[in-house]
Nucleic acid binder design. Structure first.
Ligand code: NAD
Ligand code: NAD
Lengths: 214, 214
DNA sequence: GCTGGCTTGTGAAAATCTTCACAAGCCAAG
DNA sequence: CTTGGCTTGTGAAGATTTTCACAAGCCAGC
């Protein structure tokens, strides 16, 4: 392979994101190196899993010592595509939308929310930290002006499909979708769904199961 | 097995939650029955997967016809533990916490937020839809009074572990954790983590990968 | 420069999850 | 009552993911 980024499995990618955050903590603590077992404990997995994950993109730990925190952090940032900023547009200036917008961590990681859209006349024209909420009717123009690559969809389920289609047609490459619907879009658009109902229901299932069994 | 609830795999559980919502839509559309292929299309999986998932708890579709929407819906609610209400306490009356509290869907599904806690004196004493925000110092008493089974943790990462430990000691059985830290708790406490940074970073990885490859 | 103690990298095995493929079975129509 | 068209339920196959186990290798200390 010639590229810095190799294909790794979906579950590995999600763990890499956890390792990244763990490495940031280690850096803050002043650690120079970290062993797979330590990283695993902190991230909630196993040493073997950590090593497999890291070896999947040709890693460079040192036997007897572990991984050097700084270089490993840099390498994972590369793999995850975090070495450059992403231009993001947020659609839906509601409760979830405002929480995401105000969350500083995303901006720090390079996800820049360039524009906010909503359909509610009461919200349009409002200003959040210097960003004016615009009408969703202008979705295409806003996406084009911002050269947006990622769309965050935080609108009611009924509005999601249409907005997603328009965004896809306007050239958006990835969508983080909070609406509890399956979006039907061309294959070249990456969609990642966040469904909080699923999370709560998985928890409730686990509790019921625990009642019945051991 | 004697119980109504059987052990099914984690991924099956998550899909069941998606099927549940799809079935609710079908019910609203007046559909009496649904075939595995149709359910699969709407939920974003395959017909074989749907049938495997449903057969894993001894299902009762009708060959040539499909599944009856009503009974299947009821059965999945049972499996997911949604046939009875859950007593929930929310800790962290911030942006994510307020979005979750205001989301009507959770209440409709039986997740009842009985109390809200925060540590910020400016927030304590505030009232949200009739629920008064109380001091997190009283966590144990509030949990006991509410007989809380589930805790939603929407506090900064630094505060999460301590609050989780106290809640676990006070008898909470499940935690939905939004703080980006791994909670270390006794095994009998179920923890489900929601990490939005992971979701965004998985998306960014996919986009970088798409640039490099086909 | 050699030794001892750790830790990585990785094939192989095990476990888990998904897809395939088709017999079994039901319904409706004639 | 029989036939035809569909669809389920499910073993088996295939794919993927996780765990195991150990040789290879590095560092620090002597
Ligand atoms: N709040 C939660 O905790 C929560 C939990 C799970 C899922 N969700 C999902 O997230 C999404 C947003 O939820 P929320 O709680 O923020 O809702 P919300 O009602 O607070 O916000 C939705 C926003 O979208 C705007 N909107 C509606 N139609 C639009 C359109 N066509 N174009 C542009 N903007 C439009 C509304 O004006 C509003 O500002 C929903 O799909 C919801 O189901 C929310
Ligand atoms: N907002 C987002 O989009 C977002 C995204 C990803 C993750 N998160 C995570 O969710 C959590 C909450 O985020 P947020 O944006 O709602 O933050 P926030 O600052 O808006 O809210 C946090 C709330 O917790 C309260 N709090 C702090 N310490 C407490 C304690 N010891 N006991 C009780 N309450 C306490 C604060 O007073 C505040 O009201 C954080 O861990 C954050 O990392 C948030």
């Amino acid at each position: 392979m010639t590229s810095l980024v190799r294909s790794v499995s979906e579950s590995t990618v999600r763990r890499l994101s956890l390792y990244l955050r763990t490495l940031e903590r280690l850096q803050a603590e002043g650690a120079e190196t970290v062993a797979s077992g330590d990283l695993a404990d902190r991230a909630g997995t196993t040493a073997a899993q950590v090593r497999k994950d890291l070896s999947s993109f040709g890693s460079f730990g040192t036997r007897g010592l572990g991984y050097r925190v700084g270089p490993l952090h840099a390498r994972i940032r590369e793999i995850l595509g975090l070495t450059r900023p992403w231009r993001v547009v947020l659609v839906g200036a509601g409760r979830i939308g405002s929480a995401l917008f105000a969350y500083p961590h995303f901006r720090e990681r390079g996800f820049r929310i360039e524009a906010i859209l909503d359909s509610d006349p009461a919200k349009i024209g409002g200003v959040w930290e210097g960003v004016t909420i615009q009408s969703a009717a202008h979705l295409e123009q806003v996406l084009a002006r911002a050269e947006a690559e990622i769309l965050i969809l935080a609108v009611p389920a009924g509005a999601a499909q249409e907005l997603a289609e328009r965004a896809a047609a306007a050239g958006v490459r990835g969508i983080l979708n909070f609406a509890p619907v399956r979006l039907r879009l061309p294959d070249e658009v990456e969609v990642n769904n966040v469904n909080l109902a699923v999370e709560l229901e998985a928890l409730s299932h686990a509790l019921v199961l625990a009642e019945v069994q051991g």
